[in-house]
C-alpha cells in the first residue's frame, strides 16, 4: 500500500506544480510535430495539434484531481450535514431526510449527472458540483448511523446537561467523532469521480477544451487510436493508476478504522 500512497503524492504534487510551469507548454501547438511517438523531446508523444502530451497529461492531473476533490468535498459536506442533522434530531426530521436519501438512491446517478450537465453546460466546476450533489447519500447514511450511536454516549449527555445547544453538540461533538469513516468514503469518492469525469468526456459532455483533463485527453486520443497509441495510453494509465491508488488507500483506511473499532 506504500506504492499507492506514493503515487497519489506524486500525482498530487504534479497537479499543484504542473500548471505553474507547464501550462504554456501544454497549450503550445507545433503543427510540424503533430502525432509524434514518445521521444526524449516529448516523453508521452504529441497530439494531433502537436501539443506535448506529457505537459498536457500533468496539467490534466490538476483538472481531473481538482474536479474529483471538489466533488468529494461537496459530497462530504452535504452528506455529513444532512446525516448529522437527521441522526441528531430523530423523529420526523430524520424520517424526512432519510426519505430524501432513499429517493436519491433510487436514481441511476449517472443519468442524473448526464441530464444536468447536458442542459446546464459542462464547465469543470459544474461537473464537480453535480457529481458531488449526486453522490452524498452514502456519507449521509454513514454519518447518521455514527451520530445515532454517539448521541447517547456519556460525553454528549454531559455536554447537554451542561446546557449546550443542539448546533454546538452536532458540530462540536458528533461530527468530529463521526469523521473518521467519512474520510475513508471521501477518498473512495475521489476515485469514483475521476471515472465519472472520464465517462462524461466519452459522451462528449466532459470538461471543455482547451483545458486538458484526463478524460478529454483520453477522448481525443480515441479518435487517433489506430495511428497514435500513446495519445490514449498515457491518460488512460493515469486514470487507471490514480483510481487504483485512491481506491486502495480508501479501503485500507476503512479497514483500519473497522479494525480499531472491533479492538476497542
Amino acid at each position: 500500500m506504500r506504492i499507492s500512497e506514493g503515487w497519489l503524492v506524486v500525482v498530487g504534487l504534479a497537479a499543484c506544480v504542473a500548471p505553474l510551469i507547464l501550462a504554456g507548454q501544454a497549450q503550445s501547438m507545433d503543427f510540424t510535430h503533430a502525432l509524434e511517438a514518445p521521444s526524449p523531446a516529448h516523453w508521452f508523444g504529441t497530439d494531433s495539434l502537436g501539443r506535448d502530451l506529457f505537459a498536457r497529461t500533468l496539467c490534466g492531473a490538476s483538472v481531473s484531481l481538482g474536479v474529483s476533490v471538489v466533488a468529494a468535498l461537496f459530497s462530504v459536506v452535504f452528506g455529513t450535514a444532512l446525516g448529522a442533522v437527521a441522526g441528531y434530531c430523530g423523529g420526523w426530521g430524520d424520517r424526512l431526510l432519510m426519505g430524501f436519501v432513499d429517493m436519491m438512491l433510487c436514481f441511476p446517478t449517472f443519468f442524473l449527472i448526464l441530464a444536468v450537465v447536458a442542459v446546464v453546460g459542462s464547465g469543470a466546476f459544474v461537473i464537480a458540483v453535480v457529481i458531488g450533489v449526486t453522490s452524498w447519500m452514502g456519507t449521509a447514511r454513514l454519518v447518521r448511523a455514527e451520530v445515532l450511536s454517539l448521541r447517547e454516549r456519556e460525553f454528549v449527555l454531559a455536554s447537554r446537561a451542561l446546557g449546550a445547544g443542539g448546533g454546538w453538540i452536532v458540530f462540536r461533538h458528533l461530527i468530529p467523532n463521526a469523521l473518521a469513516p467519512v474520510i475513508a468514503s471521501a477518498v473512495l469518492g475521489v476515485s469514483a469521480a475521476i471515472l465519472t469525469e472520464g465517462g462524461l468526456s466519452f459522451l462528449g459532455v466532459g470538461v471543455p477544451p482547451p483545458m486538458p483533463s484526463w478524460g478529454n485527453i483520453l477522448m481525443e486520443g480515441k479518435s487517433t487510436l489506430g495511428v497514435a497509441w500513446w495519445a490514449s495510453f498515457f491518460p488512460g494509465m493515469m486514470i487507471f493508476l490514480t483510481v487504483l491508488s485512491a481506491h486502495a488507500i480508501g479501503e485500507n483506511l476503512d479497514k483500519r478504522l473497522k479494525g480499531e473499532r472491533t479492538d476497542a
Binding site: Q27, S28, M29, S48, L49, G204, V205, P209, P210, E220, S223
Partner: peptide, 16 residues
Amino acid sequence: NQGNETRKMSCEIIQK
C-alpha cells in the same frame, strides 16, 4: 457545438 472534433480543433488554433 459539441460533438465535432474538427471544429473544436479549429477553435483552438484560432485561439492560439
